[in-house]
Simulated scan of single mutants.
Amino acid sequence: MKNYLNYQIEDFVQDPYFRRWVLGKLPPEDRFWEIWQTTHPEREELIEKAKSMVIALQINPTNENSEEIKNAIETILANTVDKKPLPFYTRNKWAMAASVALLLGFAGYWYLSQKMVMPTATTETPAIEAIDQKEINIGKTAKTITLSDGSQVILEGNSSLQIGQDFGQNKREVYLSGEAFFQVTKNADKPFLVYSGKVVTKVLGTSFRIKAYEQDADVSVDVRTGKVTVFKQSDKTQTEPLRSEEIILTPNQQAVFVKKEDKFVKTLVEKPAVLNKENARNRFEFSETPIIEVLSTIEELYGVKIIYDTDRLKDCNLTGSLNDGSFYDKLTIVCETIQATYKVMDGQVVIDGRGCR
């Protein structure tokens, strides 16, 4: 989260989130700025000045009517006939003022487009010292970016990616604001690091998704393939996690960083996917199959650890098809068959049942 208490007028004017609020482009349910302004009355005057500047820098083209313009010109010319000409400085002062205003407007527009598009780094986000490339997606359609090492990034709408100037030399570092899916080319000698707020995601070669919109309460990292290390960076100079703070994610696992509580929660992705669909063919058909074997099959095909008491479930069997339905649907059917329950804990599934004796 940015420390808005330290912001000056120019900082607010450059902040994309603040500008969207001033211009009425935030969803109605987003009341962050109203609440923030109420809880910090000492900043009200500064906020009002920043709002005025944001509004003033907007360029709103007018709808001009050619007939009205023609009539206005004729009226002006008619009123100037047989009248003494005004001194030069009087005749031109309004034109000069209009020109200055127009120039300032275009200058402001250029300044905003050049400097304000990218989110500024905060004390919570380790800024990449030298930026070689900036990618911005302000549309609704995802944008595919191929990095110099062959890695691909699918950048979602309202998101941006910054690539370090030294990318590919000793490390591969990028900074993400928003949401993106990464397909990272494997290179054991050059780890790939994604900075998103306080969260750092470190991989060697894998595919994963990060959702880190500035206004969201959480940052999430979902792993599709391979292994990912996620940790919180509290020191700008620290790029290696402390062992007690890092979280290791495997396929179909998710790490959620709760900004308000400043901590990680490890769980499963919303829709776990089969790791290899070719291997899954005809693997979900069962006939008097021991439940332990059924659970082992689900665990293998989804790559999700399932914990249970072997002794209690050794006499349970299942006959039927689990081809249809999601990962959670399959678990529900199995548990209903043996009168058990399941819950997700720390990125694993724990099944609790009395058995079938």
Rank of each mutant, 00 (worst) to 15 (best):
L5E: 10
L5R: 11
E10W: 02
D15E: 08
R20T: 03
L23R: 00
G24P: 04
P28A: 15
F32A: 01
T39A: 12
T39G: 04
H40D: 06
E42I: 06
E42N: 13
K49L: 09
S52A: 15
A56V: 01
E64W: 11
I69P: 02
K70L: 13
I73C: 08
E74T: 04
A78M: 08
A78V: 03
N79P: 01
K84F: 10
P87I: 02
T90S: 14
W94A: 15
A107T: 12
M116R: 09
M118Q: 09
P119D: 10
P126F: 00
I136A: 06
Q152A: 08
I154S: 09
Q162N: 11
I163W: 01
Q165L: 14
F167W: 05
Q169L: 10
Q169N: 12
V174Y: 02
Q183S: 13
Q183R: 12
N187E: 11
A188L: 15
A188I: 14
P191G: 04
T201E: 05
K211D: 06
Q215I: 10
S220V: 13
K227M: 10
V230Y: 05
V230F: 04
F231S: 02
K232N: 08
S244W: 08
I248E: 12
V265H: 06
K266W: 07
T267S: 11
L275R: 07
E278M: 09
S287F: 14
P290Y: 04
I291Y: 09
T297Q: 08
E299N: 06
I306L: 05
D315H: 14
N317V: 15
N323Q: 14
N323G: 10
R354I: 13
R357L: 14
